[in-house]
Amino acid sequence: MSGVSVGPGGVADAGEILTVQRAAYVAEAQRYADPLLPPLTETLDEVRAVLAGPTIVLVARAGHRLVGSVRARVAGDTAHVGRLAIAPDQQGRGIGSRLLAAVESACTGRVARLELFTGAESADNLRFYARHGYRIVGHRPDPNGVRLAVLEKSLVSPARSGP
Rank of each mutant, 00 (worst) to 15 (best):
I136S: 01
S161L: 15
Q90R: 08
A62I: 02
S122M: 12
T55D: 15
A123P: 08
E115H: 11
V111P: 04
I17R: 00
P35S: 06
S105D: 15
A120S: 15
T108Q: 15
G92V: 07
G92I: 08
L151G: 01
A12I: 06
A85G: 01
D77M: 10
R110F: 14
G94K: 03
N144R: 13
V26S: 01
D77L: 10
P35C: 03
E115L: 13
R135Y: 12
A101F: 12
G92W: 12
R65K: 10
Y25A: 00
A23K: 03
V11Y: 11
G145N: 06
V47E: 00
T41R: 02
L151P: 03
L116M: 13
S2N: 14
R65F: 09
S122Y: 11
E16A: 15
P38L: 00
G76R: 01
V50K: 04
L114M: 15
P143Q: 06
R110S: 14
R113K: 14
V111C: 10
V20R: 02
A49T: 08
T108G: 11
T118S: 12
E152Q: 12
E42K: 04
S5Y: 05
Y25E: 02
A130Q: 13
R71N: 09
R31M: 13
A101R: 11
M1V: 11
S105N: 14
E104R: 03
S97C: 09
V137A: 13
V156I: 14
S122L: 11
A106Y: 07
T43V: 03
G96Y: 04
L51P: 05
L44I: 07
R83Y: 09
R147D: 15
